[in-house]
C-alpha cells in the first residue's frame, strides 16, 4: 500500500473481532508514535496499553464513546505538571498537539499492520486515571482502541480542496489542479 492509499483508506473502526493483538505489534505501533514531532523534543507522552479483559471492562465502564468490542486500548498520557515545569504555560496548548501527532502515527502504523483503531475522547478523565492508576499529575489525554476487524467502513465524504485551501490569504480565489 502506498502512503497515499494508507492515508486515504484508513477508517475509524468501531466493530472488532475477537482476535487478540500481539505485544510485538503493539510495540511497533508505539514505536511509530514516538517518532512524531514533539515541541522542544520534550517527549512528554506515556502510553498505557490495556488488553486484559478485567481492565478493559473497567475502562469501558467510564468511556461511553468506546467501541464495546475493542480488545486493546492505548491510553496516551502526559504528566501535566512536568509539562508546565519544562515548558511553562505555553505547553498547555502544545501538549494536545504533540498527543495528536503521536496518535496519527499510531492510527497509520496500526492500519499498515492490518489493525483497526478508533480515537476515543468521550470518557471521564478522572475515573480513567484511577482505573489506570495514574499519578495525580498524569492525565490520559486520549484513548485509542486497537484490534482486528472484519469490515472496513465506507469512506465518509471529504470536502473538496477548493473549499478549504487558501493561497496567500483567506480571500484568495482558488484555482486548483483538482480531480473530480
Amino acid at each position: 500500500m502506498t502512503f497515499d492509499e494508507l492515508v486515504a483508506s484508513r477508517r475509524s473502526i468501531r466493530q472488532y473481532n475477537s482476535r487478540r493483538v500481539g505485544r510485538e505489534k503493539i510495540e511497533a505501533i508505539v514505536n511509530a508514535a514516538i517518532w512524531a514531532p514533539t515541541a522542544g523534543n520534550l517527549q512528554l507522552w506515556h502510553f498505557v496499553v490495556v488488553n486484559e479483559e478485567k481492565n478493559l471492562e473497567k475502562i469501558k465502564l467510564f468511556s461511553p464513546g468506546m467501541p464495546k468490542t475493542a480488545p486493546c486500548v492505548i491510553a496516551i498520557c502526559v504528566d501535566l505538571a512536568e509539562a508546565k515545569l519544562r515548558g511553562g504555560e505555553f505547553m498547555k496548548g502544545i501538549v494536545p498537539m504533540d498527543i495528536a501527532f503521536a496518535a496519527q502515527n499510531i492510527l497509520l502504523k496500526a492500519y499498515q499492520l492490518g489493525l483497526g483503531t478508533c480515537v476515543v475522547k468521550s470518557y471521564n478523565e478522572k475515573s480513567i486515571g484511577r482505573v489506570l492508576k495514574l499519578p495525580d499529575t498524569v492525565t490520559a489525554l486520549m484513548l485509542i482502541t486497537v484490534g482486528y476487524y472484519d469490515k472496513l467502513p465506507k469512506a465518509p465524504e471529504r470536502k473538496k480542496l477548493s473549499e478549504i485551501i487558501h493561497y496567500e490569504n483567506w480571500e484568495s480565489e482558488v484555482k486548483l489542479n483538482e480531480k473530480g
Binding site: 465502564l61 467510564f62 468511556s63 461511553p64 464513546g65 468521550s122 470518557y123 471521564n124 475515573s127
Partner: peptide, 8 residues
C-alpha cells in the same frame, strides 16, 4: 454508563 454519559 448513564452517569458517565450524563457528565460527558
Amino acid at each position: 454508563y448513564l452517569i458517565t454519559s450524563a457528565r460527558g
